[in-house]
């Protein structure tokens, strides 16, 4: 089942084309790793899916509803409904510093979904347990390590029960020894068949966890395929050159 259909996505800043005719599909339960050099448009592409970036042309269809069709966006309340099917995890976590871990998790379900308190608390307790931070529920983000912050950010996104989870370089701001705990949580989500798109520099994760790898360079998808194909037998020079640089 196709969850996301992206076709001919275009975006430019002035004369600079940051996305050129990006086309790809995401099926339910896919874990897609998007790799490529800095400035290749990976993050912009990901952010356009949740309407953090406006695109200039092309279409984005999320489980049957068009967020934007041939460059024309849906109505604001439609956009809100469609993007609410997706959760997002940012490079810099973006936790709310004035709220405790528990409050970070529970704010949006309470304000946006207006769910019952008992249900919200049941889920936040369960998710805190899942990310191994039950004992930090009442801590403020300032007291957490980077890895802990990112795990909380993942739990916060999961609180909204998204169909799809987007990760924008989730480990790039972390010290190397802290990336493991975050990747572990992501791996567990993949095993539970969460549909995920992960923009990442973690080639190990892409190889091991993703079922498809998309390589982007200079605003284009150069090639995409199974991790084994991309990593062991890339078809294009640019992919080879990039992999040589990053796997060294």
């Amino acid at each position: 089942m196709v969850l996301i259909e992206v076709s001919n996505l275009k975006k430019s800043y002035g004369k600079l084309d940051v996305l050129k005719q990006i086309t790809f599909d995401v099926n339910k339960n896919d874990v897609i790793a998007v790799i490529g050099p800095s400035g290749s448009g990976k993050s912009t592409m990901l952010r356009s899916l949740v309407h953090l970036e406006e695109i200039d042309g092309g279409s984005i269809c999320i489980s049957g509803d068009y967020l934007v069709k041939d460059g024309i966006y849906s109505k604001p309340q439609e956009i809100k409904r469609i993007t609410s099917k997706m959760g997002m995890v940012f490079q810099h976590f973006n936790l709310f510093p004035h709220l405790t871990v528990k409050e970070n998790l529970e704010l949006a379900p309470r304000l946006v979904k207006k769910e019952l308190n008992a249900e919200i608390e049941r889920r936040s307790t369960e998710l805190l347990k899942k990310i191994g931070l039950s004992d930090r529920a009442s801590a403020y983000p300032a007291k957490l390590s980077g890895g802990q912050k990112q795990r909380v950010a993942i739990a916060r996104a999961l609180m909204m029960n998204p169909e799809i989870l987007l990760f924008d370089e989730p480990t790039s701001a972390l010290d190397p020894e802290l990336t493991g705990e975050v990747l572990q949580v992501m791996k567990q989500l993949a095993e539970e068949h969460m549909t995920m798109i992960v923009v990442t520099h973690e080639m190990g994760f892409a190889k091991e966890v993703a079922n498809r790898v998309i390589f982007m360079d200079n605003g284009e998808i150069i090639e995409s395929g199974l991790p084994t194909e991309i990593f062991t037998n890339p078809k294009f020079e640019r992919t080879k050159a990039f992999l040589n640089r990053s796997l060294k």
């Binding site: 810099h92 916060r156 996104a157």
Partner: peptide, 10 residues
């Protein structure tokens, strides 16, 4: 990022 996180959470 605070505005972006708020927006994505709805």
């Amino acid at each position: 990022g605070q505005y972006e996180a708020s927006q994505v959470l709805g």
